[in-house]
Amino acid sequence: MCGRFAVTLPPDAMAQLFAATPANDLPDVPNYNVCPTTQIHVIRAGEGQRHLQSMRWGFLPHWYKTPTDGPLLINARAETIAEKPAFRAACRERRCLIPATGFYEWTKDGEGKRLPWYIHRSDGAPLAFAAVWQDWARGEEAFRTCAIVTTGANDRMRQIHHRMPVILEPRDWALWLGEEGKGAATLMRAANEDVLEFYRVDPKVNSNRARGEDLIAPI
């Protein structure tokens, strides 16, 4: 799965990297502890161009009566996304990208304590997670929401966790966004083992209130 990540790229750099037009209400960066239900940076295609905008991380199916009416859907499994009622329409029609600098995963020591790891691209480039989005509204409450697509981990990542986000290379962004016709399903696979590297970080990131650049410092 992917339940926490970091993003440090300024909005203008994100807009340039993804050739997207930025909105005016983007979340503050850097953020070294991006948590579910907060607003995050998302790239979607529409109206003949790409848009960099803010969305709520936590997908809300249209039948939810309130944002807490069902499970918190921060991830969508690649293996079942096309069949699950919550995601199947979004998988066909509303795919997007979520930029990140790195993400966190956890193991446990012999006493059951959670040990955080920070995972990032080995070449230092930003990550682009495959994701899907959905508009949700009830009365005066309205959100544009999203979920990160995950798949089975590659052999190296499996040392930490059995799942990982689907990470897309720049050559695949247009296909995932629906700009190059059909075939996006072929992209929902684990990244090659040499794409990512990881190291232990301080357990203070276990708190969703933790802030600061030192959260991604190796220990």
Rank of each mutant, 00 (worst) to 15 (best):
M1R: 07
R4D: 03
D12T: 11
F18R: 07
A23G: 13
N24F: 00
N24S: 15
D28M: 05
V29G: 13
N33Q: 11
V42F: 03
G46C: 12
G46T: 10
E47F: 04
Q49W: 00
R50N: 00
R50H: 01
H51E: 12
L52D: 08
Q53D: 10
L60R: 11
L60D: 09
Y64H: 12
D69E: 12
G70V: 13
G70R: 10
L72E: 13
L73Q: 09
A78N: 12
A82S: 13
K84C: 07
K84H: 13
K84E: 11
P85M: 08
R95D: 08
L97I: 06
A100E: 07
Y104D: 05
E111P: 02
W117A: 05
D123S: 06
L127E: 07
A128K: 02
A128P: 08
A131Y: 02
W136H: 08
A137T: 14
A147C: 06
A153G: 05
M157I: 15
I160K: 03
I160R: 05
I160Y: 01
H161D: 13
H162V: 06
I167Q: 06
L168R: 06
R171E: 15
R171H: 13
A174F: 01
W176K: 05
G178I: 09
M188S: 09
A190Y: 04
A191Y: 01
N192D: 14
E193V: 02
V201L: 03
P203D: 06
A210L: 09
L215C: 08
A217P: 01
A217Q: 02
P218I: 04
I219E: 12
